Simulated assay, not measured.
Amino acid sequence: MKKGTYEDQIRIEELEVYAHHGVYPEENEKGQHFYVNATLYTNTRPAGLADDLSLSTNYGEVCQFITEFMQQHTFQLIETVAERTAYEVLQHFPLVQGLDLEIRKPEAPIPLPFGSVSVAIHREWHEAYIAVGSNMGDSREHIAQALGQLQKNKDIRVEKVSELLETLPYGVVEQDNFVNGMFEIRTLLAPEELLQELHRIEQMEGRERKLHWGPRTLDLDIIFYDDLVYASEDLVIPHIDMENRYFVLKPLSELAPNFRHPITHKTVTQMLSELPVDLTEGNEA
Rank of each mutant, 00 (worst) to 15 (best):
T80G: 05
Y35F: 11
E13S: 15
I185P: 04
M271L: 12
Q72K: 12
I78D: 04
S253I: 15
D241I: 10
K210W: 11
S162P: 10
S116G: 02
H33V: 11
S118C: 05
E184P: 12
I201D: 02
V229C: 12
E16Q: 13
T167P: 05
R216L: 05
E13C: 13
A256T: 13
E13T: 13
F114D: 02
P25V: 13
L99W: 00
R123G: 03
T264I: 15
V36Y: 04
M182W: 08
I12Y: 15
S139W: 03
P111Q: 01
I66V: 12
V17L: 07
I110N: 00
L90S: 01
T269N: 15
N283D: 10
V173G: 07
F93E: 06
E107V: 03
A19V: 06
E27H: 06
L150V: 00
P113K: 11
G181C: 06
T85D: 04
Q151W: 00
S139D: 04
D221H: 00
L189A: 02
Q145G: 07
D226W: 03
E7K: 11
T42P: 10
L228I: 02
K3L: 11
L168T: 11
V62R: 02
D100C: 05
A146V: 02
N37M: 05
I78N: 05
G48R: 11
R209W: 02
H199M: 15
T5E: 08
E127N: 09
K210G: 14
H126N: 06
R186T: 07
N180D: 07
L220T: 00
L99C: 01
A50C: 13
Q145Y: 09
E166M: 14
E208T: 14
W213T: 01
E284I: 15
E254G: 10
G48M: 12
H21I: 13
